[in-house]
Design a protein around this nucleic acid. Structure first.
Lengths: 157, 157
DNA sequence: TTATATGCAAACGCTTTGCATCACG
DNA sequence: CGTGATGCAAAGCGTTTGCATATAA
């Protein structure tokens, strides 16, 4: 997690809210901070729990509503983990992209659509479908977790 | 829906069950038939409802358990619709593939992984991730629905 | 002072589970 | 008989909603 990045990101989220005509209330600021402080994915329940450590009386509904709001602004995205549960990730609202998520630590990277668009077009054409949406989700082990895993194995050996 | 295909598919599902050492009970046969009779995706609730039209006393749990079983055998796959709700599709258990789903009628096509594997590899390499799983979901309008839609517009005009 | 945001609790939808019964091997 | 399958109802979980209150424009 690079220094300074998080507060920048918090600010970016706040700005997105204001730009869309929503109030940047203390609760929403808190949610923005918590979201930005996360390198990867998180569940609504986790965020609520973290929020309650800072502000006791924050309501469950408030957190869900804030996340829904941020999702509508494409500042976060809701994704479906292989386990079937839901998580959110922060992301870049400005361009269509996908996610690569570490199954171990939850960290996530935005992946540019790139060549995929062409592939998707081709699949549509081949099947005669007019494709309206597509979603690619990648799950794996990030470099850090990979390294940690290797180190651990070596210690044990 | 090509003739004969459904009963074949029913049989294939039954065989998959037996091969895996599960009983092909009347309830499971019913589920298999209903699943095979669907050209596309369906929800658990829909399947339950259809099941109850044929056999009044089929339990909700039985349907869920049967679907879970079929999913574990990769005879059906559970997917997450853009709406956030869940659906199942029948599919080929033998090869890794993705789904192209019609948002209008729910029909679905299996899409071979094809070039995607290469792209996924590349993304993994570029980000230093060891990729363990990926999922591509495509949503659009199938040829039939497209045609129907066009026809309707012309009638109205 | 009017619209917006919030907290709480209750409702919700979907899915799973506990358990007694039933069927199959 | 013993194991596996079933139905039912109840519990569970994540999420949404109704509503009265509080806060911001």
């Amino acid at each position: 997690m690079r220094p300074g990045i998080n507060s920048d990101q918090t600010e970016r989220i706040i700005q997105a809210l204001k730009r869309a005509g929503y109030q940047a209330t203390p609760n929403r600021r808190l949610v923005a901070e918590l979201v930005a402080a996360t390198g990867g994915h998180f569940t609504a329940a986790e965020l609520l729990e973290r929020g309650r450590r800072e502000r006791v009386n924050i309501g469950r509904a408030t957190v869900f509503r804030a996340l829904e709001l941020l999702a509508s602004l494409r500042v976060v995205e809701r994704l479906d983990l292989p386990s079937g549960s839901h998580a959110y990730v922060v992301c870049d609202p400005d361009e269509h992209h996908h996610h690569l998520v570490c199954s171990t630590c939850g960290r996530s990277e935005d992946i540019a659509d790139g060549e995929l668009a062409r592939l998707v077009d081709e699949i549509g054409r081949r099947n005669g479908y007019r494709i309206e949406a597509h979603r690619l989700e990648l799950f794996g082990i990030c470099p850090a977790c990979s390294a940690a895993d290797t180190a651990e194995r070596e210690t044990l050996a």
